[in-house]
């Protein structure tokens, strides 16, 4: 069975999952959700664009951007996305649940690291008085970066719940299908982050 024939959706090949067509439509449905989430992110980006100069004399892009921390966060999230794809391969090629869980936990750990660095940055922002109610720029900044951070936190919770399910039930077909959708979500968050680090942080201090 070749890869090309069975791959009906992006990401993982679900040809081995018992559900067949039904699972494919679940993945497609999840894509529809991701695209609606993309619209949400895109419009918050647009609001940020209209607010980028509305600092009202308060802290601006140069004050809120700590480039070294942003670089670390970018690296951690990229590593997390990559580790997830290796976990997916371990699942696809039946490498056993432990090899899957090793890569899964690498993805979770670097995702958690991303969130910790982001929270440290947020803490610093509160210390220098760059709180959301200070200016239109900061409201939009916190909405956009915070929305992404909440998505990452939700994804980590999802990883935790699935890990417990895998430990209890093993890599059953149902759980493989859930992992596939989590994978799409996780890669999607890394793509949104590309927009944030380029347009909010780097373009802000350029």
């Amino acid at each position: 069975m070749s890869d090309q024939q069975t791959n009906m959706h992006p990401g993982l090949n679900l040809g081995y999952v018992g559900g067949g067509k039904h699972e494919e439509s679940k993945v497609f449905g999840f894509w529809v959700f991701l695209m609606s989430d993309l619209v949400t992110f895109g419009l918050v980006f647009a609001i940020f664009g209209t607010m980028r100069n509305a600092t009202a004399g308060g802290p601006g892009a140069h004050e809120v951007t700590e480039l070294r921390s942003i670089a670390i966060q970018t690296g951690l999230l990229l590593l997390s996305s990559f580790a997830f794809s290796w976990a997916s391969l371990a699942m696809k090629y039946e490498a056993g649940r432990w090899r899957f869980l090793i890569w899964f936990s690498v993805a979770a750990t670097s995702g958690l690291g991303f969130l910790i660095f982001e929270l440290l940055d947020f803490h610093h922002l509160i210390e220098i008085g760059a709180v959301p109610q200070r200016s239109g720029y900061l409201s939009a900044f916190w909405s956009l970066v915070g929305l992404h951070g909440l998505h990452v936190a939700g994804g980590l919770l999802w990883i935790g719940v699935l890990t417990l399910q895998i430990l209890k039930f093993g890599l059953t077909d149902t759980i493989k299908s859930r992992i596939t959708r989590l994978g799409l979500y996780w890669h999607f968050l890394d793509i949104v982050w590309i927009g944030i680090f380029s347009l909010v942080f780097l373009a802000g201090v350029a």
Binding site: Q4, P10, G11, H187, D190, I194, S198, L199, A203
Partner: peptide, 26 residues
């Protein structure tokens, strides 16, 4: 340059991590 690099990376990640391409099934 930032916009071009970001768009390029989005395309790369869609292609290599999410497997979006022009084959018929997808």
């Amino acid at each position: 340059a930032l916009v071009v690099l970001a768009l390029a990376q989005i395309v790369v990640q869609l292609r290599y991590f999410l497997h979006i391409d022009f084959t018929h099934q997808k």
